[in-house]
Every structure is written in structure tokens, then in C-alpha cells.
Amino acid sequence: MRALTWQGLENVSVETVPDPTIQDPTDAIIRVTSTAICGSDLHLYGVLGMYLDAGDILGHEAMGVVEEVGSSTGDLKVGDRVVIPFGIACGTCFMCRRGLQSQCETTQVRAEGKGAALFGYTRLYGSVPGGQAQYLRVPQAQYGPVVIPDDGTPDERYLYLSDVLPTAWQAVEYAAVPSGGTVVVLGLGPIGQMAARIARHRGAGRVIGVDLVPERLAMAARHGVEVLDTAHLGQGDVGSAIRDLTDGRGADAVIDAVGMEAHGSPIAEAAMKVVGRLPDPLAAAATERAGTDRLAALLTGIDAVRRGGTVSISGVYGGAKDPLPMMQLFDKQVTLRMGQANVRHWIDDLLPLVQDESDPLGVLDLRTHRLPLERAADAYRTFQHKEDGCIKVVLDPSL
């Protein structure tokens, strides 16, 4: 089959690799019909190469049609149209029963001290081949795949159930926005776009989206989000602008949908690039013992939230030694909530919304580029550099 493989920092290519096979009774094989590029994939593309080997298959947002099932996959059957959650969970362990599928004890990568295994996301999370490919082996298929109607609707109506929608829904849930309250969404990439729409859908009185990319601001605005363009603000001025918009108080909640990719942290950015180019053992040691992130977005969130408010973190961070303003957090009595999305926990809330023909979350207005899988390397570069109005890329293995 053809698959998008990591070959080195900022170097990915589509190669011919062996087709996946059933390895365990709970496995299934799907033929991928759509697979998306996530902002988290850019971390692998540009920073976290020390945890990858040349030839690793990337991608954790995929859907398709079941081609083969193992002997213990429950009701799943050949021909089912399915979305595959990015985290791999069993559904029956202590953590899964408590709605913490991202911490599944069956698939936890204990050797690395990490939570549940993820598709296409380094040896830290199990080195499971990813979904930017023609076919995908799905472990724990008795629980993970979400069967959806084979109703002829575009894949993009359902594809984002793999990651974007559950991650955004959890971000809003964790933000604990009071009814009629104000929430600020930092970063209007795919997660931020959906978090802002979900917050409006769930009753926030005011949703303010913050970004500096014109296309992202325009997309959020057409979904009723009040936008703040940071291109016209100095560093550190976002908090002041939010207070000016909220009677001097700050937002009831802030969602950090940016994470380590934040602009405005030049020293940390330079350090990350240097570490990423060290030999793998040295780079891994530096990351695990002394790594720091670009914290501009998180620090902005802490500044912009009101006293007694909540900061919800959905953007990915990986630093071992990130300095936090503990005095400010304590003095303001800020609540922090964060973590990988527990995808299956939120599916029952989300599935009726994506099936609704009125498209209340605007899932059909997120993808800006649909390209053949063979053009994945170009798509990564375009997405990384935010060129050509790129907000969300979907790859089609059939083209």
C-alpha cells in the first residue's frame, strides 16, 4: 500500500509499504477513505523527530470502510463505514469505565510513562502505524471504531469525530463556561474553530476568538465568533484587550487551543529547534529532563482569564521544565484543566450534531484543502507555513 512516512525533520514522503494484517483477535483492517493532517502532526514534522524512525507512518485522524475483522471484534463487520478515534482504548478497564479513555490501562505505554497508545504518534505512544495511508490496522476494534451511516454524505461530515470535535468538545467542557458567560479561544486552527462554535452552541453568551491569520479570523467570524486580531497588538497586550472587552474583569474561561506552537516565544522556539537537530539520544534526554515549550499562549490565557476563572488547555505541550507563574495562578484562584481528548466519552453528545442536516457546528465548513495522499508532503509544508489559506487538510488515498 501507499503511506505517508516520516523520513527526518521536515521531511516526509509517500512510500510503498507492506499492507497491514490482523495481528490480534481484536484487530480490524480498514480501507481509508479520508485522513486529515492535525496540528499535532506538525510537532512530529518539525520538533519531535528523536522519537521517530525513518519509515514510521504518520496520521491519527482517519475514517474508512472495514475490510477485515479479527475473531473478537464484537458487532463490527466487513463493510461498515467507520471513524477511528485517535486514541486506542479497550472500553472495559478502570480508566475507560470512568470516561478516561486517553488513559486506558490496556494500551498504556508504560515503558515510556505515557497514557493510552495513539495512532501514528512516536514510540512514546506505542509506535502504532498511523492512518495517512491506504489501509490501517485498528487495535481494540471491538470498542474503538465509531460506526456511522453509509448515507452518501461527504466524509467531512463525520471525519472530525476522530479528533477535532471530541478535543474541542472536551476543551469547552473543561472550560466550565457559565451560561451566558464569556469564553476566549486562543488560536483559531481547526480545534479553536470548533471549540468556538461548540461554546456558542452550548450557551456561551460571548465567544472571542484570538489569532493573527486573516483566513482563520474570517472563518471564525462567519460562524458568529467575535474575533481579535493579534497582528495589531503588541506582545502582552491580548490580556489588556480582553479586559477592555469585559468591564476590566477578564474572561470567565479561556481555551488554549495553541500549545507549544505559540508565536511570541523566540528563545524557547530557538531552543526547541536546536534540540530537535541533536542526535536522537541527546535530543530525547534534553526534552525529557530539561525541555521547555513556547508558553506564550498559556501565559496569555492566565493573564486574560478573570479571577476565579478557568483555563482549559487542549493545545499540546511536552516540556519537562516549563516555568509557570504560580503566584499569579494562586492569587487569581485560577482552575487549570487539560489532557488528551477522551474521544469515545464524547461521541454520544457529538454524533447527533454531525448527523443533523442543518450542520449546527459547521463541520462542512472547516476543510480548506482536499488533496490526494500522494501530495501529502506538499500539504504538510503548506499547512506548516499557513499558506494558500490553509486551515484544515484532508488527504484522499483514492485520488
Rank of each mutant, 00 (worst) to 15 (best):
A286C: 14
L212S: 12
L212R: 13
G276Q: 09
L278W: 11
G239K: 06
I242Y: 03
L295K: 04
A271I: 13
L186P: 00
G180W: 08
L159K: 06
A268E: 14
D293F: 11
A257G: 07
Y160Q: 15
L233Q: 01
A175P: 05
W169C: 07
P178M: 11
H201L: 14
R216M: 06
A290M: 15
G291T: 10
A262E: 05
L228V: 08
S265T: 11
R206Q: 09
G209P: 04
I242E: 00
Q235I: 11
R289T: 15
A241Y: 07
T230C: 06
A296Y: 01
G192Y: 01
A283E: 13
G236Q: 04
R249Q: 12
L233S: 00
D237I: 02
R216E: 08
A290T: 14
H232C: 05
I255P: 00
E288C: 12
A218G: 04
L165H: 04
G239A: 06
I208C: 01
H263S: 13
G209A: 07
E215K: 12
M260E: 06
R277E: 13
S162V: 09
A262H: 04
R157T: 15
Y160D: 15
H232V: 13
H232Y: 08
G209R: 06
Y160C: 12
D293A: 08
A171I: 03
V210T: 04
G187V: 01
D163Q: 13
A251P: 05
G205H: 10
G239R: 07
G192D: 02
D237T: 08
L188V: 10
G239P: 12
V227Y: 05
A176L: 11
T167I: 09
S265K: 08
A270S: 14
V172E: 01
V183T: 09
A283I: 14
L233M: 03
A257Y: 05
D237L: 08
E261V: 12
L298G: 07
H201S: 10
I198M: 11
A284P: 10
L233T: 02
G250P: 01
H223I: 12
A176T: 15
L186S: 01
S265W: 10
I267N: 11
G181M: 04
R197H: 08
G236V: 04
G205D: 11
E269L: 12
V210S: 01
H263P: 03
H223L: 13
G248Q: 02
G248N: 10
L217C: 11
K273F: 11
